[in-house]
Design a protein around this nucleic acid. Structure first.
Lengths: 158, 158
DNA sequence: GGTATGTATGTTATACCATAACACGTCAAG
DNA sequence: CTTGACGTGTTATGGTATAACATACATACC
């Protein structure tokens, strides 16, 4: 599977697909995809774009879950730890991972016009970064690679 | 000049050197390195690590400058625009650029133990990222590449 | 079944990060 | 000497994130 990218796609299908794989992954590990956590993942998948913690929280509260920040942050942190979601530093926001389970070093392409976020294949990027870090004697544990620019649609519009 | 890295170095020298080059750059352009801005740059250089805006503000206030957040943020934003400082998204913090003027795509190595931050040469990383983005039709304007891990000293200590 | 233990959720309170909007001062151009 | 651009100071507010504690729920073990 290539990256989901900015192009149109069968959204219901990709959402269901990811959820199913999330369930499978959580059984494999000893992790529990509780109602709040599952719902947060669904919300992220439905939105299909980066959402702030407080946006997620609002949705949760409207559905009878707790309405205090920690409720959202805990679920989001869990999803990030489990590789089911990613945090976009640049936007102080979160987005569902579109191919959970696969080992992947995420690189994000953020459109500054429409705010869409795509995951790009980042292995070569990571390799280059490892090389640069290695020559400094630095041991990388996690990396975040985020690019801001214009997605294809917004380039066309301009 | 290679990256400053995590190793010991003549700190007074690198600070003075960068300041001198900042002055030169500001004359070239039509930009003004006013007292507040210059002082903020000095503070960042002296600290030689990432500092939050409020940390900088505290220092400024103690020296008779304004003590409200915008004072710090405006100076910091100016320095970032001019390429004299960088924002570290991961830390909500700022750090002085160690080689201003030189075209450079910054990649940051952040030690999770001692919080030191080094700039690593990122051209290859950037190239790989451009390639990945290009295949999606995405046009990169700015990128932030940040790695969290352990610096050499903290690896040795562990 | 009952109970202990760990984990998840809910809630209060607070800390931290960032910017909008307006007032005042200064300096150079006209 | 006035106008306009820019920089700084200040008030107020908005957005992001977490510490700390209380409660509930699940599972495993007796």
């Amino acid at each position: 599977m290539q990256t989901p990218a900015f192009h149109s796609h069968d959204h219901a299908h990709c959402t269901g697909d990811v959820l199913a794989r999330a369930d499978a992954l959580m059984s494999e590990r000893a992790a529990r995809l509780t109602p709040v956590r599952r719902r947060v993942l669904e919300i992220l998948l439905e939105a299909h774009r980066a959402m702030g913690a407080y946006d997620v929280l609002q949705r949760l509260a409207a559905e009878g879950f707790g309405n205090q920040p920690p409720v959202a942050y805990r679920a989001l942190d869990f999803l990030v730890e489990q590789g089911l979601a990613h945090r976009i530093q640049r936007l102080n926001a979160f987005t569902a991972c579109m191919h959970p389970g696969e080992a992947h070093a995420p690189a994000f392409l953020i459109c500054r016009n429409c705010n869409a976020v795509a995951e790009a294949p980042a292995s070569p990027v990571l390799a280059a970064l490892e090389a640069a870090a290695g020559s400094e004697g630095f041991a990388i544990e996690r990396a975040s690679i985020e690019a801001v620019g214009l997605c294809p649609s917004c380039q066309a519009a301009a």
